[in-house]
Design a protein around this nucleic acid. Structure first.
Lengths: 333, 333
DNA sequence: CTGAAAGCGCTTACAG
DNA sequence: CTGAAAGCGCTTACAG
């Protein structure tokens, strides 16, 4: 059996309360007793029982995470594991723990949230993704449970979130292409129910607009999934209409599919840019330029925001914007 | 404030002990009181406090996981997230929780293990990887903490593990190549301190041996890292010695590097096979054949083994072998 | 500066 | 079949 606070108290000849205070680094403890207690702690190799502490404190310092099963590219896209490492780095720094859960069944997320919150297991949640009319956000809001969302949700009222500036990122890519002389730029986007889809589309339109380039709706495709086959189909529809000089996409997998369509249908060089900069991007033919979204930093900031809330810090903000970086490769050279 | 067991007891007009027994589904409770208690639970929307239960039970039903920082390809290889999903699926089925930790600093693993075990936070650990003379295994063994290792460790005495049959998998690949008529097959392996490295090398040698093919040590390269550049260097050394008709590798990244060297130095077609079947494999030029190791299944079985131990089941085995599958693509056709 | 006591919300051996 | 009581290992308001 390992030592408890009582054992330490006995050895140090003080009361358990005092030991507890020494551990908590309470200011009103004399130097000597503090030393005596520390001595005893070392002697017994004592370590506080976190569970007992949690019960007394009514706080577990555990953050809950749900790994979404709806993501097409959980295994192709390192986004989630990157976010998770970022979260861990900050959490660890602050003495917090992280619990995750994954399920194959659709919509089990809400079940986990309920389980974790009802049983008082976690102090708060980080949602790794946010959909339109997100049930999880709704649930957490209604129950007043602390949480942070990765990806700006539709309704930011009373929710904390971290995200990239998707408008700016896409604006930058299109702007760059225009400056390189491209005047006919197509757009292939993902599901409309994601906010980032809209933001990226807006960025595309704005850049064209600013440069006085006509916005042709037939050059804009919005897919229902972030998959290669969707990108392939979309590109084919665009090519049937007109051959653009460049195409921007809101996801690397969409770009892969588009690239395949381009390589199959035409020998003309069409510039193409992806989004997310997954490892596969560098291996395309030609290597794909892509926007790096710095997923680890997103996770890090999500943890920072949540823990700030949990510790009742006076937060000056309810969100963080993480910088993106356009990684240029052959596909846009 | 949410309801406690006392509130339920009051409403149902029984003692807290009885409520507890109903929740635990104890057999010696009368039908009627059981119904009354269940009614009260529903009425109050009562959910047991897991932390309090953990303290009373001296068991948290939490499994600890350390995401290794030493892995070259945490983000390129979905291995870890796949193992993690597999673990979660089984754990969830059994009512267990999973905690993970990641750190950028080398060798912080042991610090986490100590923290998690000393503070009685977790009931057991799953090690996602095992090195030679693994400090973590040593520590857990010494402290008699329940754990399971993914990947057969050097010394299997008193340790539970899950793994593929790496010998058999590589034997199968080489055997297939020989049957296709290859008679000069090179081998590029990873760090020697991993057991799987040895097993795969043995499989390679055995297959040659069985077919009476001479084993040429100069055709065998063992690298210090699972990186493309290592694969590139190794292949160049082999090519400088002799041009093989095929090359097998123990990791896809090694194969990518080797492929690059081949494409640069010779126009001859050299068959090549990878290992792990990461998503990038299908995107090589030519698409790379590779051994799929079924990482999710590894995780699932690791959780099964650990939870079996924790629940004192009479385990008939201390390990599971997960099947591999050779995914053939153009590179070996 | 320190201690005795109550409390966090459960479980379970003991008694009936 | 059910309850009173003790216990899990901490924290902290209260008193001195």
């Amino acid at each position: 059996m390992s030592a408890t606070i009582k054992d330490v108290a006995r050895i140090a000849n003080v009361s358990p309360s005092t030991v507890s205070r020494v551990i908590a680094d309470s200011p009103r403890i004399s130097k000597e007793t503090k030393l005596r207690v520390e001595q005893a702690i070392k002697e017994l190799n004592y370590h506080p029982n976190i569970i007992a502490r949690s019960l007394a404190n009514k706080s577990t310092k555990i953050i809950g995470l749900i790994i979404p099963n709806t993501s097409e590219d959980l295994f192709k896209n390192p986004f989630f594991i990157q976010v998770m490492t970022g979260i861990s780095i900050y959490a660890q720094k602050k003495g917090y723990y992280i619990m995750y859960s994954y399920s194959k069944k659709e919509n089990e997320e809400i079940k986990f949230l309920k389980n974790y919150s009802n049983s008082k297991l976690v102090d708060g949640f980080i949602l790794l993704t946010s959909k339109k009319d997100d049930k999880c956000i709704e649930f957490l809001k209604k129950n007043n449970y602390p949480f942070v969302v990765v990806g700006r949700p539709e309704d930011t009222n009373k929710v904390s979130w971290v995200d990239n500036d998707n408008f700016k990122a896409m604006y930058g890519v299109v702007n760059l292409l225009i400056q390189k002389g491209h005047n006919s730029i197509a757009f292939i986007g993902g599901p409309k129910q994601f906010n980032m889809s809209k933001d990226r589309l807006e960025g595309y339109k704005k850049a064209l607009d600013v440069h006085g380039v006509y916005i042709d709706d037939k050059m804009i495709e919005q897919e229902t999934n972030f998959t290669e086959s969707c990108g392939f189909e979309a590109m084919n529809r665009i090519l049937s209409y007109k051959i653009p000089s460049a195409v921007v996409t809101t996801d690397d997998l969409l770009a892969f599919g588009a690239l395949k369509a381009i390589n199959e249908r035409t020998c003309q060089k069409i510039a193409i840019a992806g989004f997310n900069n997954i490892p596969l991007a560098a291996y395309q033919n030609p290597p794909l330029s892509s926007v790096d979204i710095n997923a680890e930093e997103l996770g890090y900031n999500a943890a920072k925001l949540l823990i700030g809330k949990l510790e009742n810090e006076l937060l000056t903000t309810n969100h963080y914007i993480v910088e993106t970086k356009f990684i240029e490769r052959e596909s846009t050279l």
